[in-house]
């Protein structure tokens, strides 16, 4: 995300340097949204406990999506929650990032085949960092946050063409294959 809201890399040396500075600030002051979903949420809380203490890296939770920079999807997202999750993502102020924490958020995890589970949160929101594990250890979440920090601050990574972002809920609204009943 560029300084002026464009994804083009600024050519100007002044703007370019300022852009680097701003992105450095963004990467070093990532405030996650307080949004615990399932088992991973407990490990997410444990990432801020005295043992790991992600606050060392300038990260602390904000309760309101307007003031948050990072959404940590910590748990299974089912079809009932998916709309709310997307809404929360939409409510976050730009620039914003998403970390998919744990197997459930990555692809449905052990509940993948189930009728109510969204098979991967990246069907709803664009994900920047995926963490494997069920649940991932707090150290893994910290590493993911630091990876995200590097991604935000790094020029080459930052200006890579972003993956297509789903903008509506059509993934969830599809009426379903052969007789599966509509879920929304």
């Amino acid at each position: 995300m560029g300084l002026l809201g464009s994804d083009e890399r600024p050519r100007d040396i002044v703007l370019g340097t300022l852009d680097d500075l701003i992105n450095m600030a963004r990467s070093r002051s990532m405030w996650p949204l307080t949004f615990g979903i399932a088992c991973c949420a407990i490990e997410m809380m444990a990432t801020w406990d005295p043992k790991i203490d992600a606050d060392r890296f300038g990260m602390f939770f904000r309760n309101t999506p307007r003031q948050a920079d990072v959404m940590i999807v910590s748990g299974t997202v089912n079809k009932k929650l998916a709309k709310r999750l997307r809404r929360l993502y939409d409510q976050m102020a730009e620039p914003k990032w998403v970390i998919s924490m744990g197997a459930c958020a990555n692809q449905g995890g052990p509940f993948r085949q189930g009728y109510s589970v969204v098979e991967g949160v990246d069907k709803i929101v664009p994900v920047d960092v995926y963490i494997p594990g069920c649940p991932p250890r707090p150290e893994a979440l910290l590493q993911a946050l630091l990876l995200l920090r590097d991604k935000i601050a790094d020029r080459e990574l930052r200006y890579k063409k972003p993956r297509a972002i789903p903008t509506d809920y059509d993934v969830l609204a599809e009426p379903g294959k052969d007789g599966r009943l509509p879920v929304l």
Partner: peptide, 26 residues
């Protein structure tokens, strides 16, 4: 409620007995 409904009871019917135990953990 139901925002974390993960079809435990249905998916456990499709698992063998030892495989159910990790699901109960969650």
């Amino acid at each position: 409620i139901g925002y974390l409904h993960r079809n435990h009871e249905k998916i456990e019917e499709a698992r063998t007995y030892p495989m159910v135990i990790p699901y109960t953990d969650r």
